[in-house]
Design a protein around this nucleic acid. Structure first.
Ligand SMILES: [Mn+2]
Ligand SMILES: [Mn+2]
Ligand SMILES: [Zn+2]
Ligand SMILES: [Zn+2]
Lengths: 131, 131
DNA sequence: ATCTCAGTTTAGAATTATTCTAAAGTATTG
DNA sequence: CAATACTTTAGAATAATTCTAAACTGAGAT
C-alpha cells in the first residue's frame, strides 16, 4: 500500500485523493519548507487539483498530528517544515528564504527556566541574515 | 528640552506632536513590548489622538533608527520591543504574551557560520510556552 | 513674523494571508 | 447498497498592514 496512505491511516486521517497527493509530495523523504501558497502552486501542475482551502486544512491537520512543524518567522506567511527533527533555521528577510541549520551546528548550553505554571513547548532559534 | 525631542533630533526625525507623544511613552525607561494596536489604544486615552497610520509610520521609523526592535514571532501581529539590548524571549502562543529572558539566562556556545555571501544580522531565540 | 517647502499626518481604500461558511462530495462501516 | 460522519470546496469574511493622495506643519530662509 502507498506509504502516504499508511501514514494517514496511522494518524486517523482518511486517505482522500487530496491528502494522498499532498502527502506524497511532502513525505517523499526530502526535507522541505513550504507555504500554503507554494504548495498550492506546486499541486496545480499535477493532474488533479486541490483547492486552496484544502491545502490549508491539510497543512494544519498534518501539524496537529505532528507530521509537520509550523514555523512562524515572518509576519505574512506561515512556513511548514517536513523536517520534524529538532533543528534551527537561517532566515533571509529580504528573499524570505528559510534554510536549515544542522542540529550539531548550534549548541545552547544554558536555558532559562519557564515562568511559573508554564512549560517549554518548543525552542526556536532563528538567525536572520543580510547580504 | 524634552528628552524625547532630543532623541528625535539626534535621529533626524522632526519632533512632531505625535512622535513626541509616542516617544514619551516608549522611551520612559520601562521596557515594553507593544503592537501597533496596543500602542494605538493606549494613546486614545491621551489628550491628543494619533491616527493608526501614524502609529505604524512611527514604529517603523523608530525601528529603522534602531530605537526599537521588531520581533516577528506571531503571524498576525508584529511586536516592537523598547529593550534594544540583546536578549531573548518567551512566547506564550495561547495568550500571545511576550516575556523577556534575562540575557545571562541563555548561553549559545556554538553558532553556525552564515551561508556564503550572507552575514548574520540578528539571532533570535524564542522559547514557546504552554501550560 | 511671514514665506516656502520638504517632511508628516491622516482617513479611507487597497492588499493579502488566512479563516470561515455552508453546501456538495466521498470514504468507511454495517 | 445505505447511512453517516468526515472531507472538500468556492466564495465570502476577517484582520493586520500598507498604500494613496490630500491636508497640515515644523523649520529654515528672507
Ligand atoms: Mn499581512
Ligand atoms: Mn492575518
Ligand atoms: Zn527546517
Ligand atoms: Zn524584549
Amino acid at each position: 500500500m502507498n506509504m502516504t496512505k499508511k501514514i494517514l491511516r496511522a494518524n486517523d486521517l482518511r486517505p482522500t485523493k487530496q491528502r494522498v497527493l499532498i502527502g506524497d509530495y511532502l513525505f517523499d523523504g526530502i526535507d522541505k519548507h513550504v507555504t500554503a501558497e507554494s504548495l498550492f502552486k506546486k499541486l496545480l501542475n499535477e493532474k488533479r487539483g486541490v483547492s486552496l482551502a484544502t491545502v490549508y486544512n491539510t497543512l494544519h491537520e498534518f501539524c496537529k498530528k505532528e507530521l509537520l512543524n509550523k514555523i512562524t518567522i515572518d509576519t505574512d506567511k506561515v512556513y511548514f517544515d517536513t523536517n520534524i527533527s529538532s533543528h534551527h533555521h537561517f532566515f533571509s528577510d529580504k528573499e524570505k528564504l528559510l534554510l536549515d541549520i544542522r542540529s550539531q551546528d548550534v549548541i545552547i548550553s544554558s536555558m532559562p527556566v519557564a515562568p511559573k505554571g508554564k512549560k517549554i513547548k518548543k525552542v526556536e532559534l532563528i538567525i536572520h541574515l543580510e547580504d
